[in-house]
Design a protein around this nucleic acid. Structure first.
Lengths: 206, 206
DNA sequence: TGTATTATGTTAGCAGTGTCAACATTTATA
DNA sequence: TATAAATGTTGACACTGCTAACATAATACA
């Protein structure tokens, strides 16, 4: 039954790569096992992805698309502070639940987004969600909006990184939980909504 | 002249690894080339580092030690807001100037710091610099200090990540600089001190 | 001091990787 | 229908992390 041509290999490779990257981390992914998983020869993926980085770019792009959906805010309703807080929480949840994919999106595995225009567009579009919500909050200039937006994004992005480190250490709990930044991070994670509410208020009323 | 035993191989391997990791990124580092660089056989490094991850841990540890020095604030003098701003700027500069090492410190290459107690201690000690400076600013409870501290750290850490992405894209300038988060990030980078001053004020007076 | 132990180095080799060149087959196009 | 393009396969190269078995030097101890 199996024909010489697969028919839908590219998409199947991407789907499979997304699954494996999220399950095992992108460093564990090999093109060869990916090909085997799709029942195709070792080098077949090279007809669709010039390099491994190009494959990573596709996985990262998929990640940004999912992130956009996850943090989406209905633009019809007027945006208020609570919605921004919600968005921040959803962002952090996405980062923690899709930790390995998040690495690919914000790490250095894909060196230069500009080499992958589709990825760049998906990434920018994710940010645009963020920005447009912010822009409805007050009558700020574009520059002020950019300022506030980057501030919040940086903090939320940074929190994901720090909470993840804390998670790993806490999961293995081999250290004194009284010491170090990890314990502080865990404190905050336990009270994330309040924390974000305060910080976001601070940024908005800046 | 060259004796069978190297004499100082472990330290030389670490130094060399730090150099190469920072120059080419840790993904490009191979134990074999590292050994060659030190004029020693392919497998000699395994007498000093059980796995490649253990080597990464040493490089990361060195990074945290350097970070501690870079952001160090003289504890004799009473700490004021300007010093916190300075510290934040030095942190960001460190992250941007030692971008590849920074990846190793805060990425996932070393999965669990608790497996490398010396690394964990260096990392915690870096944070302690941050925290103790903060604690002198006001008479806050430990919990409030932890809160403020993590907030600032997350933001500063997140900024490093985002500014780096912006840098790469800007360096290659293949995209419309009017669109996307990158341009906003560049705006802020050009005015980093003012930006941080505002944000830090917001956090302190929270 | 002489010997046993440990630390540190070497060689050879396995299984796995990204990538390329050459070739095969199917699909699209003129 | 002939030709070109797309998509697949096989085989191979150079490289990787890592292990086992062995060699030599430094150290500890009788």
């Amino acid at each position: 039954m199996k024909s010489y041509h697969h028919g839908n290999l590219k998409q199947e490779l991407i789907d499979c790569a997304c699954r494996l990257c999220e399950r095992d981390g992108y460093t564990k992914l090999s093109i060869r096992t990916l090909a085997k998983e799709s029942g195709v020869s070792q080098t077949a993926p090279y007809r669709h992805f010039e390099t491994k980085e190009a494959l990573y770019a596709s996985v990262a792009q998929d990640g940004f698309n999912k992130l956009s959906k996850a943090i989406h805010v209905d633009v019809d309703k007027k945006v208020n502070k609570k919605q921004i807080v919600d968005m921040a929480i959803k962002y952090i949840e996405f980062g923690l639940k899709n930790a390995n994919t998040y690495d690919l999106m914000f790490g250095t595995a894909v060196g230069n987004f500009a080499e992958y225009p589709e990825l760049l567009e998906s990434a920018n579009s994710s940010y645009e969600n963020f920005r447009s919500s912010f822009s409805q909050l007050a009558n700020d200039s574009d520059e002020v909006i950019a300022f506030k937006c980057i501030t919040l994004w940086s903090m939320v992005h940074g929190l994901v990184g720090i909470l993840r480190k804390a998670q790993v250490v806490a999961d293995n709990s081999m250290v004194n939980p009284e010491a170090g930044p990890m314990s502080s991070a865990i404190l905050i994670a336990g009270n994330l909504e309040d924390h974000l509410d305060k910080v976001i208020s601070g940024i908005i009323e800046n």
